[in-house]
Write a protein that binds this DNA or RNA. Structure first.
Length: 613
RNA sequence: GCCACCUUAGCUCAGUUGGUAGAGCACCUCAUUCGUAACGAGGAGGUCGCCGGUUCGAUCCCGGCAGGUGGCUCCA
């Protein structure tokens, strides 16, 4: 089965879903029902009636009846006026609205998917002449197709969930119920998909964060405000330390700023107008000044740049800092570490001359590549450029140069990339990096953004070789991005089996007997391991060895040593190696004590290259 | 912020058609001194998320709030 057939199949199922719902609730009003990844949905307005997952068996049974009836999908055409009459008679206000828009403007004003859904025949500017309908059995819907030939040939499906969705995606419109389903060619493919969902659930960072004791939330502290435990903090620190090492090597200087500022700062930067609602405001009891928790760092960093006169010889000036910003995200949008209200960033700002852009952006691209290759995550870059609209600020010629530069760099650095027109920020083009995780999902992570606007707003300048004042270009870059979000991605990527250098606990010593000889040996082993810089713990609980081994496995500790009388006498150790590491080359064999500790210490140092394991 | 669903011991979850609750794991004590994924016995642990209403009586029904989940909208 090719993609086209699969598409037609899923699309037909969207119709069948609506048809089944209409059989069950005669007064259902329908929105649109497109194909999405792995399946389809249909937006339905049932007034006061709420569909719940308990209704799914009922709806699915009705759908199967329609499938069994094996109705043919038949296309017909109506003139736009006939279609409007049809919508009126069928009491379908949403279809009616869409058809009216079609008649008036030739396209619907809403998303592109509307147009694709509606059977728009003419793509020109002129009003639409005729529209296409599909009928199967007792159900007719405005639709361009294509469809399966009959309702009997639509593969296997399963309704997954019901969710609220705004009519035409606008939050001031009526909210409809969106019924989601997945559909595949056969049962095996559906089972595979459902199995993948289970796998994804197993590595859900919220679950692993709980199981591995990495972070917690407290209702007293507030939602979207994660608290990192000692274990979680080690992971954070290791990852940020790595990113910081790259910064230092690239000539960045660390700076440090307070977490609040007078709101005046954002009135100058322009963020107040655009994002004022997402600021946390802070009141002074002493002065009349209004303060805000910083939602970004650039305006602060700009003040450091602006504090002295700068020469063209000083540039580029590169500041970096790992720090937290605060955004009053809407509560419904928060979730785990993926979307939080205290966002830590490995943020940086370069102030550069135009002729330095290429080198500076190139260096950042290469730092991003270094980090993600060390973390075993393939990257894809989205080159986010401007489109023809008016919303972009700054010198158009500078835009052209910058976009060309970005394009060249992508080629030079052999970046897997694609261009996205209209994705640029209003202040400049950017490169957004997407990382591919171990189960094939893409996540937006690092970002490099050129900024032509803030230097102007803040009157940033330098003196060129002719004594003239010039404006620098700013480059924003975060390699990890939001560290919280990155952790959510990385925990799921590794499924909690962190590489040695990231692991909160690198070596666990299981003490078998508490005889003085064994205790003494373990103590010496632990201090020797600490001297080598290993994070080591001892399990001397009064439990069976089997139980302690199990615990170490559950905590996903990379290396475990069982120490009893045998080891004390032989002075040779055979570590138990976490299975994924063993595959990579950490073989299970016997070592002398010093030899083993040295080899583990080497593995930590080798974080950036797997080959040296 | 909007829609739907959810909240019972530290964790995972039973349960009560309205008469104030239970398991497994974890924890503590005792016993055991063990050999590479769970030894055993006993104990402690709960204002059934919070506030209000209905009721003789609410963990259960109703309302509000908080927190969570899935979406929508948004994302400097």
């Amino acid at each position: 089965m090719d993609d086209k057939q699969l598409y037609a199949m899923r699309h037909s199922l969207a119709h069948i879903t609506a048809q089944a719902v209409q059989h069950l609730w005669q007064d259902a009003k329908f929105g649109v029902g497109p194909v999405v990844e792995n399946g389809f949905y249909y937006d339905i307005d049932l007034g006061e009636t709420k569909i719940s997952e308990d209704d799914f068996p009922k709806i699915e049974a009705e759908m199967l009846k329609i499938v069994d009836a094996n109705y043919a999908f038949e296309q017909s055409k109506k003139s736009i006026d006939e279609a409007i009459t049809w919508a009126k008679e069928a009491e379908q206000p949403y279809k009616h609205e869409l058809l009216n828009d079609l008649k008036r403007a030739g396209t619907t004003v809403a998303k592109d998917l509307d147009a694709a859904e509606l059977g728009v025949e003419s793509t020109g500017d002129s009003a639409v002449e005729s529209v296409s309908f599909y009928t199967d059995g007792d159900f007719t819907d405005l639709c361009r197709g294509p469809h399966a030939t009959t309702t009997g040939s639509v593969g296997v499906f399963k309704l997954m969930r019901v969710a609220g969705a705004y009519w035409r995606g606008k939050s001031d419109n009526a909210q409809m119920q969106r019924l989601y389903g997945v559909a595949f060619q056969d049962q095996t493919e559906l089972d595979t998909y459902l199995h993948q969902l289970e796998e994804a659930k197993k590595r859900d960072h919220r679950k692993l964060g709980q199981e591995l004791d990495l972070f917690v939330f407290s209702p007293l502290v507030g939602s979207g405000l994660p608290l990192f435990t000692p274990r979680g903090t080690i992971i954070r620190d290791e990852l940020t330390a790595f990113a910081e090492t790259l910064r230092v090597a690239s000539g960045f200087q660390r700076v440090s700023i307070p977490h609040i500022t007078k709101t005046e700062l954002y009135k100058v930067s322009g963020h107040w107008d655009k994002f004022g609602e997402e600021l946390f405001l802070v009141k002074s009891q002493e002065t009349s000044d209004e303060f805000a928790l910083k939602p970004m760092n650039c305006p602060h960093h700009n003040q450091i740049y602006a504090a002295r006169p700068r020469s063209y010889r000083d540039l580029p000036i590169r500041y970096f800092e790992t720090t937290t910003v605060y955004r009053d995200e809407k509560t419904g949008e928060l979730g785990g570490l993926s979307r939080v209200r205290s966002i830590s960033q490995d943020d940086s700002h370069v102030y550069a001359r135009r002729d330095q852009l290429q080198t500076e952006v190139g260096r950042l691209v290469s730092d991003v590549q270094t980090l993600y290759s060390a973390l075993d995550m393939p990257l894809r870059a989205r080159l986010s450029f401007r489109d023809a609209s008016e919303k972009y600020l700054g010198d158009p010629e500078l835009w052209n140069v910058a976009q060309a530069t970005i394009r060249d760099l992508a080629t030079e650095n052999k970046l897997k990339s694609f261009e996205a027109e209209g994705e640029a920020a209003f202040y400049g083009p950017k490169i957004d990096f997407m990382a591919l995780d171990a189960i094939g999902r893409e996540h937006q992570v690092a970002t490099i953004q050129l900024d032509f606007v803030q230097p102007q707003r803040f009157d940033l300048e330098y003196t060129d070789e002719h004594g003239e004042k010039q404006q620098p270009v700013m480059i924003h870059c975060a390699i990890l991005g939001s560290i919280e979000r990155f952790l959510s991605v990385y925990i799921e990527h590794t499924a909690g089996r962190f590489p040695m250098w990231v692991s909160p606990e690198q070596l666990r010593v299981i003490q078998v007997k508490d005889s003085p000889e064994v205790v003494n040996f373990v103590q010496q082993l632990v201090s020797a391991a600490r001297e080598k810089g290993l994070r080591v713990t001892v399990d001397d609980d009064n439990q069976s060895v089997g139980k302690k081994i199990r615990d170490a496995e559950m905590w996903k500790v990379p290396y475990t040593l069982v120490i009893g009388e045998k080891e004390v006498q032989a002075e040779r150790l055979k570590p138990r190696v976490r299975s994924d590491l063993a595959v990579l080359g950490g073989e299970e064999r016997e070592y002398e004590v010093d030899q083993l500790l040295q080899s583990l210490a080497n593995e930590i140092k080798a974080r950036a290259s797997k080959s040296s394991l």
